[in-house]
Design a protein around this nucleic acid. Structure first.
Length: 496
DNA sequence: TGAAATGTTGGGGCG
DNA sequence: ACGCCCCAACATTTC
């Protein structure tokens, strides 16, 4: 049918610029029906903070589409059923989308694609979310990369990744629009107590907000990234992660913005600073590749010997203290409270709190990953799973298990003035720098003058560092010997 | 993208 | 003057 519309199925690509599915649908020269489906039947449906973000991002997308003379149709339910209904209602003869890489999404989308094509409908998918897709980058022996540095070398050698395309000026509308639910009907906002005020004052979801962040960062932050990125007390990171997760901006656009700045030679010998940023962007890629090739990444340790790791089962109280930011270690508590209040935590502090949970408290990393999934505005199955496994020591190219962060030293090193702790743990803000990361070592009169009463206004450390460190190392010793007896011939990869 | 334990070196105090 | 010891400071090894 000459004027049959195409459905553009938006998922984690909530943008109009550099959106290949949208471009391709528009290029047909026939009507385009943009659709978003909230599909809570899928594994790892978005968590609380992510849903808050989604609500606002959809509002922005809706407005942007309206400006282009189009309209966002919103539905709920099983994606296949909803698409089916929409095709019947609109007479669409094709569905266009940008690919996802989560295992459940791949299964679902593959089935949908096959079913559409079986019935003679068009089903086309594109890459909007990665610089290089899994399958397009493999080692010389054809296996997926398990080590980051060779992955980085191979991927960065494939640059540039193409010029990002602009937004379509106008999208051809169908004769009639399908009915749509309102964004409110999706009930994405927090129910019960509204914890989202801190999020609203921190973030600007949507494509415009994403580009504002990117522009601002490339102009002012990029040239100092390497120096400042590890300082949680400073705004030294790009804070693009939630925008990238929902595809309000794509990695091609980020790469392009950075290399354009580099090409203009305006960084005055600060190229190394920018390269560190690109490497972080590529850690995101690496995580996606790992998730694609190792689909059990979200729940099962990549390193099989960790199957026997003696995690503590009865960890309810410890987990809760960690979640609430009540461990008695200021840098840990500051991070966990920043997370709760803003939906985000500085990356350096994420490593510290994750190390603390898995190594000091011996709580399984999956419990930490679940909490992050629910509380982070940038919750992303690939990055979250790969990073927790990395910290726990069981992932690809992981930090060795025996690399245990000392939360006091990490605090003193990366928050030297204690400003980060002061901000998020205000009950300690009158302590002098010298003890703000270890209040239990302060003399009684120092504590008294700062109005701190340990065990009352702020907790005593829930565990002694020395004790925890030795206990963690002993636990690790157990699985080292155990697997050797169970598995005499070690695989070549593990022999490293 | 660690920290702690252990080893080495060399300056200076001191008998 | 000389050797001895102490102990920062730095380096290396181990976890």
């Amino acid at each position: 049918m000459p004027s049959s519309p195409a459905i553009v199925w938006f998922r984690q690509d909530l943008r109009l610029t550099d959106n290949p599915a949208l471009q391709a649908a528009k290029a047909r020269g026939r009507p385009v029906i943009p659709v978003f489906i909230l599909d809570d039947t899928i594994d790892w449906a978005p968590g609380g903070a992510s849903r808050w973000w989604l609500r606002h991002s959809l509002t922005q997308l809706q407005a942007a589409l309206a400006t282009a003379g189009s309209r966002l149709t919103i539905r709920r339910g099983r994606s296949a059923d909803v698409l089916e209904a929409l095709i019947a209602e609109t007479g669409a003869d094709g569905v266009y989308w940008n690919r996802l890489y989560e295992p459940a999404a791949i299964r679902r989308d593959t089935a949908i694609k096959a079913s559409l094509r079986d019935r003679g409908l068009q089903a086309r998918s594109f890459n909007a979310s990665l610089l290089v897709e899994p399958g397009d980058i493999l080692t010389a022996t054809g296996s997926p990369y398990r080590v980051y540095t060779p992955f980085w070398r191979a991927l960065s050698a494939m640059a540039p990744f193409g010029e990002p395309s602009g937004a379509p000026h106008a999208l051809p509308a169908p004769e009639g629009w399908p009915t749509s639910e309102s964004i409110d009907m999706l009930r994405l906002q927090p129910s019960g107590p509204d914890w989202s005020t801190g999020l609203a004052s921190t973030w600007q979801p949507g494509e415009a907000g994403a580009h504002q962040r990117l522009t601002q960062f490339v102009r002012n932050g990029l040239g100092h990234y390497k120096t400042r990125r590890n300082r949680p007390d400073i705004d030294g990171t790009a804070s693009l992660s939630p925008h990238l997760h929902w595809g309000e901006v794509g990695p091609r656009q980020v790469w392009h913005a950075v290399s354009e700045r580099l090409g203009r030679g305006e960084l005055n010998g600060r190229e190394a600073q920018a390269e560190v940023f690109l490497k972080e962007l590529v850690w995101r890629e690496f995580s996606y590749h790992l998730l694609y090739h190792f689909p059990t990444l979200p729940d099962t340790p990549l390193n099989g010997r960790f199957a026997a790791f003696p995690w503590i089962d009865d960890h309810h109280a410890a987990l809760r203290a960690w979640q609430r930011g009540q461990t008695g270690y200021p840098i840990v508590d500051a991070g966990m409270r920043q997370l709760w209040q803003t939906g985000w935590m500085h990356n350096r502090v994420r490593m510290v709190v994750a190390s603390f949970l898995t190594k000091h408290l011996l709580v399984p990393w999956q419990a930490g990953a679940e909490w992050f999934w629910d509380t982070l505005v940038d919750a992303d199955l690939a990055s979250n799973s790969a990073s927790w496994q990395w910290v726990a020591g069981c992932g690809a190219d992981a930090a060795p298990y025996f690399r245990i962060f000392n939360p006091v030293l990490q605090g003193q090193k990366f928050d030297p003035l204690g400003a980060y702790v002061s901000r998020w743990v205000p009950e300690l803000d009158r302590l002098p720098e010298s003890v703000i990361h270890c209040p239990w070592q302060a003399k009684p009169d120092v504590l008294a003058r700062a109005g701190v009463r340990l065990g009352t206004t702020y907790p005593q450390p829930i565990i002694d560092h020395q004790f925890a460190r030795r206990r963690a190392l002993a636990a690790y010793e157990r699985i080292k010997s155990e697997v050797t007896t169970m598995n005499p011939e070690r695989s070549p990869e593990l022999a490293l």
